[in-house]
């Protein structure tokens, strides 16, 4: 009694979509490892392990078939996005707490795959930065700036045994966004801030290339039609326009738009986080509004907020608005006039 019996021949599935998203993340991950050391491998490993174990456990407890849901790959994408948002070399339990918040609270408390109104990885990140600001603002210093070059073994040691043998100052620093904010508030001229060693030619040293690699992965997803252009473009335009306007108003206080595009989580957010279909708007016009709002809020939070980066909060706020945006941006249906009749 099935309609459309042929429906099974299209060769796409949720797991293939998720695997392709993960493949698109790989250039960014490699760039990250190159510029910021092997810590990223540890955090990816930990987040993935925690997330898969937790997802399996929850599925068992919810009495749903474990295999198809675990193999859909959605929890892997969540784990990777969380790992890429959190600072590397943080204590292991930070990742564990982040995973619990993302997978259990943000995803399964709302009914699991497809039901969550908020981006799980961003819920994990936001809750952690509110709860553990000290750990969340210490990032490994970029290549060439760290006094001590870490091996993978050192990274594991740091994450699990704590910061015993090596002094944290030797390998971590605040992010450029953080530094810019503190220094600019202290009145340091923009040129002097830009002259600091952690800044690169446009954004943060090394981070520029990581951002570019994420953007490259995002373009791959566009080419494979995993995402549409609406969300990344609207997010980046919203961010650049707002940052540009602020920069024009007060160049001493606010960095230029290119700096904003290439630092922090802007590219990751534009291509991989804001595009999460479950939590994003789903109509073409809605996507533009939703992502434009997220980009706008990212710039505002970076400029005036208390936290170094604004992507997570901006995306979460935009998530809240999605049902409203969707309801008012329904496309015209074939055969209806402009009034929808």
């Amino acid at each position: 009694m099935n309609g459309s019996p042929y429906a099974l021949l299209a060769k796409n599935s949720v797991s293939s979509v998720m695997l392709k998203v993960m493949a698109a993340l790989i250039p960014g991950i490699i760039a990250h490892a190159w510029f910021f050391g092997p810590g990223i491998w540890v955090s990816l490993f930990l987040c993935t392990g925690f997330a898969v174990a937790l997802e399996g456990l929850i599925l068992l407890m919810r009495n749903v078939p474990v295999k198809p849901f675990l193999s859909d790959g959605s929890v892997l994408v969540t784990a990777w996005l969380l790992a890429l948002s959190l600072p590397t070399l943080a204590p292991w339990w930070l990742y564990a707490v982040g995973v619990v918040l993302a997978v259990l609270v943000a995803k399964h408390f709302y009914g699991g795959l497809g039901q969550n109104p908020f981006n799980p990885a961003m819920v994990g990140y936001a809750a952690l930065i509110v709860s553990f600001p000290v750990y969340m603002t210490q990032w490994p210093a970029p290549l060439g700036l760290a006094d001590h070059s870490l091996t993978l073994l050192d990274a594991f040691d740091l994450v699990f045994a704590g910061q015993g043998s090596i002094s944290p100052d030797a390998y971590t620093s605040a992010t450029v966004l953080d530094t810019w904010k503190t220094q600019a508030r202290l009145g340091l001229p923009a040129e002097d801030i830009r002259a600091m060693a952690m800044f690169g030619w446009a954004g943060a040293r090394g981070q520029e290339f990581v951002a570019a690699a994420f953007a490259f992965g995002g373009l791959l997803m566009l080419a494979h039609r995993l995402i549409t252009w609406h969300i990344p473009v609207a997010f980046l335009v919203g961010l650049a326009l707002t940052a540009g306007l602020l920069h024009l108003l007060d160049p001493g206080r606010h960095a230029d738009p290119l700096f904003h595009l290439l630092s922090g989580g802007a590219m990751l957010g534009a291509f991989f986080i804001a595009t999460d279909p479950v939590t994003a708007s789903s109509t073409p016009l809605g996507k533009l509004i939703y992502a434009g709002l997220a980009g706008f809020l990212t710039a505002l939070i970076r400029a005036f907020g208390g936290y170094p980066d604004g992507v997570a909060f901006a995306v979460l706020i935009a998530n809240i608005c999605v049902p409203f945006i969707d309801a008012y941006t329904q496309p015209r249906v074939f055969g209806h006039d402009k009034a929808g009749k």
Binding site: S13, L113, S282
Partner: peptide, 30 residues
Amino acid sequence: VHFPPRPAPLPCIRCGACARSCPADLQPFE
């Protein structure tokens, strides 16, 4: 081969593929 049994459906992830394929410009997932 051409008509395999239908795999068990997973939840909708609102990816919008259905809406992009709809010739009537509907939002099938809604």
